[in-house]
Simulated scan of single mutants.
Amino acid sequence: MIDPFANNHQSMQIGELIVENQEDKVIIYGDLDLLFDEAGYEQAKQLHELTTKVLQAFENSDQNNKKTLSSKQENDQPDNDIDNPFM
C-alpha cells in the first residue's frame, strides 16, 4: 500500500487500476471490475484502504502544507517569456 503524497516513487495496482504516488498528487488510471466474488471483495477492500489513506492525508494537511510542493504541470505556465536560444 502506498503512503499518499509522501514521495515520488511508489505505485501500486488493484486489478487493472494503477495508482502512482507523488508528493503533490496521487494519479489513478485504468479499469477495475469488481466482481461479486472473493477476488472482487479483496480488491474492494484494497480500494477502500487506499481511499481512506488519501482522505487521512487531506485531513492531516497541516503537516503537508509545510512542504513546498511543485508539479511539472504547475511549472509549465505558458505566460512566462523565455529567451529564444536560436536568435
Rank of each mutant, 00 (worst) to 15 (best):
2 I>L: 14
3 D>T: 13
3 D>Y: 06
3 D>N: 06
3 D>I: 13
4 P>H: 01
6 A>D: 11
7 N>M: 05
7 N>T: 07
7 N>K: 04
9 H>W: 01
9 H>M: 12
9 H>E: 09
10 Q>P: 01
11 S>T: 11
11 S>Y: 10
11 S>H: 13
12 M>N: 07
12 M>F: 11
13 Q>V: 12
13 Q>A: 09
14 I>H: 03
14 I>L: 03
15 G>E: 03
15 G>W: 06
15 G>A: 01
16 E>G: 06
16 E>D: 14
16 E>Q: 15
18 I>L: 04
18 I>F: 03
18 I>D: 02
19 V>E: 09
20 E>W: 02
20 E>K: 08
20 E>D: 14
21 N>F: 05
21 N>K: 02
23 E>T: 09
23 E>I: 06
24 D>C: 07
25 K>Q: 15
25 K>N: 11
25 K>C: 15
26 V>D: 12
26 V>P: 02
26 V>C: 04
26 V>K: 00
27 I>P: 00
29 Y>Q: 08
29 Y>D: 07
30 G>F: 03
32 L>F: 01
35 L>H: 07
35 L>K: 14
36 F>W: 13
36 F>S: 12
36 F>G: 03
36 F>Y: 09
37 D>S: 05
39 A>Q: 15
40 G>S: 06
41 Y>T: 12
41 Y>G: 01
41 Y>C: 09
41 Y>L: 12
41 Y>Q: 13
42 E>V: 01
42 E>K: 11
44 A>L: 13
45 K>R: 09
45 K>P: 00
46 Q>M: 10
46 Q>A: 10
47 L>P: 05
47 L>T: 11
48 H>Y: 07
49 E>C: 03
49 E>V: 05
50 L>T: 12
50 L>D: 01
50 L>S: 11
50 L>P: 06
51 T>H: 12
51 T>W: 08
52 T>W: 02
52 T>K: 11
55 L>M: 14
55 L>T: 13
55 L>Y: 05
56 Q>R: 08
57 A>N: 08
57 A>T: 15
58 F>N: 05
59 E>M: 14
59 E>Q: 15
61 S>M: 02
61 S>H: 12
62 D>T: 05
63 Q>W: 00
63 Q>T: 10
63 Q>C: 04
64 N>C: 04
64 N>P: 00
65 N>V: 14
65 N>G: 00
65 N>A: 06
65 N>M: 08
66 K>T: 15
66 K>C: 01
67 K>T: 09
67 K>D: 14
68 T>S: 06
70 S>R: 03
71 S>I: 04
71 S>W: 03
72 K>C: 02
73 Q>H: 12
73 Q>R: 10
74 E>R: 13
76 D>T: 03
78 P>M: 07
78 P>K: 01
78 P>S: 02
80 N>G: 01
81 D>T: 12
81 D>A: 08
82 I>V: 13
82 I>D: 03
83 D>M: 06
83 D>E: 15
84 N>L: 09
84 N>I: 07
86 F>E: 09
86 F>S: 08
86 F>M: 11
86 F>K: 09
